[in-house]
Design a protein around this nucleic acid. Structure first.
Lengths: 232, 232
DNA sequence: ACCTGAACACCGTTCAAGT
DNA sequence: ACCTGAACACCGTTCAAGT
């Protein structure tokens, strides 16, 4: 009478380890794993299927096509972003939100190029934007919140975009690689920056990101209080 | 004895109109034309060849492979950017540089995703960066110029990235499309922004871009004069 | 020197067929 | 219901062959 018990255990174990059944969720997770390992170019219906020990055509029973899979993959990234809370301090929430996006997108460098490039199919990205906007409403009027949203969004994604696509990692003595890769002899201004700032080892992407973010946040506060007309 | 003259003329004319001979330059221009028409996904060795009235394999005599062609295409975009002059007013130069990049990249929306995504092969992008940095040196010390570069670069590319990838064009009464595409009923904060700002027709991407840019430039000037330690 | 045809290994996708 | 094999039209790329 212990037989059924054991059997069920074994069946469960087998279906968890060997072939736990296909599903949209598992397919998306597999696609993310493939992208983490080999970049977005490595993601094909065949490689994702192989990751799951299955044939490529099997995927089509669970996802409509590759386009739909990539949209789902973009959402898989965005749902990991921290969602700002409009009842808390807006500035701290913007910091938290920005840092979260940067953490997620540096962990999955293929994500940034996907979130913006595909026409944001689905509601995940819009809902995230809506939460950020709501948080900004707690500090600014609608017009100023629109400025703040545009500015913050552009800076955050722009910073992450360049950070993620750099051919070398910062710090850790990669300056020589950098010098070789860039032929710094022909770039006097960059050479000066590298030798005076980066070689000392004090350069940090995290610190740079925060400095820019704070400068923008300071500017937004000042802007909101002083009004627009002054820089003309 | 007029025969040779006529013949040469006809040969030249024929080779200019029908088959002007293949070259790397013509291949890159053809690739840009294909991308302008159908996006980056439409660029294949076969479509580019067809654009030139030639077979796909012919391209390999002039370009090493598709990777090299795409790198050349990225450079084709970047060389159109205005190069800031470090002897002129740095603020105006940053404006001009930013506006130029935005103009070029909105004219060729496939460009932005390419400049950052490929490891900036070649010296075109680094040289452009070097010129910007040199212009910033005319106003700031090295450390501050590095902050300014990082901030401006992130904002400019981030803004263009989101502008270029929006599923609808601004103004021109696209609000209803936007409402349908985004299901604004589920996005109260965005709905408020759209109804109060965009429907009035006063929203302009160019204006928004300039407002953010000026806020950053103001902040950089202030930052440089007051020093860093105050926001902690 | 410059272009091409045939061939190879890949890709997304469909559809009839298996269980 | 869920997975697969065969097939199709597309890729990038090589290489021997044409002129």
């Amino acid at each position: 009478m212990s037989v059924p018990y054991v059997c069920m255990n074994m069946k469960t174990a087998a279906s968890d380890i060997a072939k736990p059944r296909l599903s949209a969720k598992r397919i998306i997770a597999a696609a993310a794993a493939v992208a983490d390992r080999g970049g977005l170019d490595a993601v094909s219906m065949r490689t994702v299927a192989k990751q799951l020990g299955v044939e490529a055509m099997s995927l089509y029973y669970h996802v409509k096509n590759k386009e739909a899979l990539l949209n789902a993959l973009a959402n898989w990234v965005v749902v990991q972003f921290y969602v700002p809370d409009s009842t808390k301090n807006w500035r701290e929430e913007m910091h938290r939100s920005a840092a979260s996006r940067r953490a997620v997108l540096t962990a999955h460098p293929w994500g940034i190029g996907m979130i913006e490039s595909r026409g944001t199919a689905g509601m995940v990205v819009p809902r995230h934007h809506d939460a950020i906007l709501g948080c900004l409403y707690s500090a600014f009027d609608v017009r100023m919140a629109a400025h703040a949203f545009s500015l913050l969004d552009a800076y955050i994604y722009g910073f992450i975009l360049t950070e993620v696509n750099l051919p070398f990692a910062p710090g850790e003595g990669h300056e020589t690689e950098m010098a070789v890769a860039l032929d710094l002899d022909a770039l006097p201004n960059m050479r000066r920056m590298v030798t005076e700032l980066m070689v000392t080892g004090e350069y940090s992407y995290t610190a740079e990101f925060e400095i820019g973010l704070d400068l923008i946040l300071d500017g937004l506060e000042r802007f909101a209080h002083e009004g627009i007309a002054q820089s003309g």
